[in-house]
């Protein structure tokens, strides 16, 4: 029995389904598949996840042992996956930068002026509310374009700044009730 890519996927899904059915659901769901509440039998919280687990197990078994596709899918391109994951990690870092830029700028300003400023109170005032989004957003677009093009260019920087300003114009300027990232977290 040759270990094709589909067979590997099927086996991994089978293992995940078994862990879900026999470990995760029993340990992390308080009620069973059916429950007796006040002399009435009712469906418990475990039934839904069990159905999900059965779908996964059934799919995994068919993929691993039954289905014979006309051709195997293209081999997984490890480099492309690493590139995609790098983009996600990079975006995560940019959103963290977004999260800390505003409070850091307020801290610097309060140190410089000696006043007692707090970002939570300034999160919806100009220019403070734009600092995080402008910095993190520009870095995000500039970085992803540069990663894709394998070079950093002035054009990418201009596109990034223009796009972030356009997003501020779309989401923030016309509306009083919308909060740009990361201001809702403060």
């Amino acid at each position: 029995m040759a270990m094709t890519q589909n067979r590997w996927i099927g086996l991994v899904v089978c293992v995940l389904a078994l862990v879900l059915l026999f470990v995760w659901i029993p340990l992390d769901v308080e009620t069973g598949i059916v429950e007796k509440i006040r002399r009435q039998v009712e469906i418990g919280d475990a039934l839904g996840p069990t159905v999900a687990g059965v779908f996964l197990l059934f799919g995994g078994v068919i993929l691993a042992f039954v289905e014979r596709p006309p051709s195997e899918p293209k081999p997984v391109d490890g480099q492309a996956i690493r590139f995609a994951l790098l983009i996600v990690v990079y975006l995560g870092v940019c959103f963290l930068v977004m999260l800390v830029t505003g409070p850091a700028a307020v801290w610097v300003a309060s140190q410089a002026t000696g006043s007692d400023l707090e970002y939570r109170l300034l999160r919806d005032t100009v220019p403070w509310k734009y600092l995080g989004f402008l910095t993190g957003g520009t870095l995000a677009i500039l970085g992803v374009i540069s990663l894709a093009e394998r070079r950093v260019s002035l054009k990418a920087l201009i596109v990034a700044v223009a796009a972030v300003i356009a997003m501020i114009a779309i989401y923030d300027l016309p509306f009083d009730d919308l909060l740009l990232p990361p201001n809702g977290d403060f």
Partner: peptide, 25 residues
């Protein structure tokens, strides 16, 4: 592929049931 369709459906159902339910927990 039926198998891959079932796997995709199972994952969707699993995601739908995380953090929900009738119990307090």
């Amino acid at each position: 592929s039926l198998a891959k369709g079932l796997i995709s459906t199972g994952l969707g159902l699993l995601a739908a049931y995380v953090g929900t339910g009738q119990d307090f927990y």
